[in-house]
Design a protein around this nucleic acid. Structure first.
Lengths: 189, 189
DNA sequence: GTCTATAGGATGATAGAC
DNA sequence: GTCTATCATCCTATAGAC
């Protein structure tokens, strides 16, 4: 990834550390060391440690929100929408796995309006996903299981994909999409 | 849950806080406040903050290890073993969701031998799970997809079940087992 | 844009009284 | 078994020199 500003570089380095140890266990000194400067110098580019977390999580949450809006507007079946959503998650995992780790594990360390804003976006995302599943069930395209179990099962796999993709990084993305869609939608039996 | 010693009570209260904010963000003063005592008093019962994390994670890891060993010894098909494993995870989620959160999110904060011991147990568990999947594929009981994708898909759902079960806690455990097995094994289509 | 110096407070843990 | 007092260290962040 090309980094255009010193601020972006700091946020990128911080995200790598957050992914490894979590937001609370990473200090400004850790981040500074990764940048090759002193901790105090970071504050010429960012306002606070909190700001790093905010940018990482909220920017990514907006990507998911706009991705969902985009897919919902398509003239395709519920099942095809779910396929598109799986692909959306895989693309984001491949390109932004560090930010994804922060979004998954450190969102509770956001403060005030940022926290409220994130929770709202997440609830909204899940609500739209749930509705697509329900519609699929109602037209007989999806098995009549508890919609919540289906939603959770798919989302939990997609949300933690970043943990796994780094280890098996060699796997081709298109192959991954195909097999992941197959396993999540058609099962393994 | 009945708590038999002051030490166990401390570990239990700590686990609740770790689940909410993560190990690094929880202070000894936080734990003490939950117990209604001062931080210094905790040290009459435990050696260190690290000890709490060790007990939580390693005890639970041993439960998974012995559960796997137990299931592997059964004279049933690979698919039936996977069903048993899903049920094992659900039972542990229902009874020990706080320790499960620590195991999932804070294992990297273990130190020295504890960390090495945990990683070894986790690798061993995954290896056994992977072999069951491979055996199922080889006898044609499981679809011939990438075993790693199947393993990851099932495990990621089961590992994060604790995040979801608390919200939908009213759901009957046996109903959950039935629907979860169906969704994970037979898919949704 | 980076540095040194430091403020101001939190942190894990210990010592010793009760 | 709990307390108060405290240590030594670490933390985020600021001020001001270069």
């Amino acid at each position: 990834m090309k980094i255009y500003s010193r601020k972006a570089e700091i946020i990128f380095q911080a995200s790598q550390l957050f992914k490894e140890k979590g937001y609370s266990a990473v200090t400004m000194r850790d981040i500074a060391q990764e940048m090759g400067i002193k901790a105090a110098s970071l504050y010429n580019h960012i306002k606070s440690k909190q700001e790093i977390l905010s940018v990482l999580i909220l920017d990514l949450a907006k990507d998911f929100t706009s991705g969902m809006k985009n897919i919902e507007g398509m003239k395709i079946s519920p099942l095809q929408k779910i396929e598109k959503l799986i692909e959306l998650h895989i693309d984001i995992t491949v390109n932004q796995s560090e930010a994804l780790a922060a979004l998954n594990n450190d969102w509770m360390h956001l403060e005030e309006e940022d926290l409220a804003s994130f929770i709202k976006m997440r609830e909204n995302y899940e609500e739209h996903f749930r509705n697509i599943i329900k519609e699929g069930i109602s037209i007989g395209q999806i098995q009549p299981r508890h919609p919540e179990v289906i939603l959770f099962s798919i989302l939990s796999t997609l949300r933690t994909l970043y943990l796994w993709y780094q280890k098996r990084g060699k796997l081709d993305v298109n192959l991954l999409k195909r097999d992941m869609v197959a396993v999540l939608l058609r099962g393994i039996v």
